[in-house]
Design a protein around this nucleic acid. Structure first.
Length: 427
RNA sequence: GGAAGAGUGGCAGAGCGGUUUAAUGCACCGGUCUUGAAAACCGACGUGGGUUCGCGCCCACCGUGAGUUCGAAUCUCACCUCUUCCGCCA
């Protein structure tokens, strides 16, 4: 949620900034609700004050044995007026809140202005793109003879599900373990294990609800207490700070977890239908940092580096892209994507996304810290993939394929694979 | 799933319909004293919001939500969470 003081002070600036991301802020609606809120709130509080004082008066008079019928009638009148006011106030406050919860974050000044992914800015390219003296296959064909089974996934669950067996399944696990170990041991994140089903409050906190419910899978358990499958580890990790006031000295909080992610992929029909680029279920190692507002952009750079290190160690060619205003996610002030080279597509594909959400999420979830003067302030939250496991598997299958159908194992993964250097076709 | 009990400020804990502005203790912070520390003493000490240039004044919050009442931390109902025991289970 964006800062309401900002909205009251400089509505035009907010409107302009949001328009760069293609969002049309309804200033008329906001102003009208805000005016009503103000009026109702002042009036309501005045009546509450008089009710409190009169009631106290009754108490005093009663203890002296006096008759208070007149005052009691007066309070009675005040209370019935109050009831209507309070109801109206609540209604307006909820309307205001409901609207503001659907408004995306303001982009940081350094974010390139643009409409869509074509306007994103490549800020770095790294690694050497291999040349192959044979016709490269895509990961579906490379993986087929080693246990990557999309038909079985479809049989068990439907489209966009994968079943892995044997060496591919092990490679997948090795990648995940390697990433998690690197984040913990080299980058100083605390390992976490989290729930994979979360409540609506958590999703409201990180911004998936109320606007993006259709992207989520949910479980039914009666009508009211629905739980949702997490679309990313960001949700449970970031919500750790929900409704919390942490001491400044405890910052930064750096968390990581390997979690499955579940996405309905509504609206992506026909996109990436082949292979495991876009799945309903995938694993991801997530990095989350909860930091002092002064340090969030330094943390953002750090986290991009943490994601880059994984790709470097896996010796995969990649580039870093600064997303433009029109391509950024709902909650982000600034986002860098990491894209890995896929030889079969002769292009880079997203494998990590690292975002600084500034106070957008912490304002929604009341995540604060206490400074040395005992003042409370909102924290800044950041999240990033470090990295997506399934897509890393895709990249390795494709970049490490050999002409005879074998798959080389990146050096850093060999220890996780019992020391083998390649996955060979069984003879 | 069944039974019983409990949810009050950072923690402990009183209050169980009206002079509550939520007592008191501990912890934390500031100060006095001290060569320094401890002790003692003094002071400050929850969160969100409204309004004001500001001092300030005011409102809401005692697990959550409804209700009763002139007035609710206190009474009623529902729900949630936790504890203990039983059942089941990895």
């Amino acid at each position: 949620m964006i800062d309401t003081t900002l909205l009251r002070d400089d509505l035009a600036a907010v409107e302009k900034k949001l328009s760069t991301r293609g969002f049309n802020f309804d200033s008329k609606l906001f102003s009208s609700l805000e005016t009503q809120r103000k009026e109702l709130q002042v009036k309501t509080q005045e009546l509450q004050e008089s009710r409190n004082q009169l009631s106290k008066q009754i108490g005093i008079e009663k203890s002296k044995g006096m008759d208070s019928t007149d005052i009691m009638n007066e309070v009675s009148k005040v209370s019935s007026d109050l009831k209507d006011l309070e109801t109206n106030l609540l209604k307006i406050q909820n309307e205001l809140q409901d609207y503001l919860l659907t408004v995306p974050n303001l982009p940081h000044d350094s974010v390139p202005v643009g409409k869509n992914e074509n306007d994103n800015q490549v800020v770095k390219e790294s690694g050497t793109i291999k040349t192959y003296d044979f016709e490269v296959k895509d990961h579906v064909d490379v993986g087929f003879s080693h246990g990557l089974d999309f038909d079985l996934g479809a049989k068990l669950s439907g489209a966009r599900f994968t079943f892995m067996r044997g060496p591919i399944a092990r490679l997948h696990r090795a990648i995940a373990q390697f990433m998690l170990d690197t984040q913990i041991n080299d980058h100083g994140y605390e390992e976490c294990y989290t729930p994979f089903l979360v409540n609506a409050d958590s999703l409201l906190g990180t911004g998936q609800l109320p606007k993006f419910e259709e992207d989520l899978f949910s479980t039914s358990r009666g009508d009211d207490d629905r739980l949702f499958l997490i679309p990313t580890g960001e949700v449970p990790l970031t919500n750790l700070a929900r409704e919390l006031i942490v001491d400044e000295k405890e910052l930064p909080i750096k968390l990581t977890a390997l979690t499955p992610c579940f996405r309905s992929e509504a609206g992506s029909y026909g996109k990436d239908t082949r292979g495991m680029i876009r799945q309903h279920q995938f694993e991801k190692v997530e990095m989350v940092q909860i930091v002092h507002p002064d340090h969030s952009y330094k943390a953002l750079d750090e986290m991009v580096q943490h994601a880059e290190n994984i790709l470097s160690k896996l010796e995969l060619p990649y580039r870093v892209v600064s997303l433009c205003t029109g391509d950024m996610g709902f909650g982000a002030s600034k986002t860098y994507d990491l894209e890995v080279w896929l030889p079969s597509q002769q292009t880079y594909r997203e494998i990590s996304s690292v975002s600084n959400c500034e106070a957008f999420q912490s304002r929604r979830m009341k995540a604060r810290f206490k400074d040395s003067n005992k003042k409370n302030h909102l924290l800044h939250t950041l999240n990033g993939s470090g990295l997506a496991v399934g897509r890393a598997l895709v990249a390795i299958l494709e970049n490490y394929q050999e002409s005879n159908g074998d798959i080389g194992i990146p050096t850093v993964l060999q220890a996780y694979m019992g020391g083998i250097q390649k996955i060979s076709i069984e003879t």
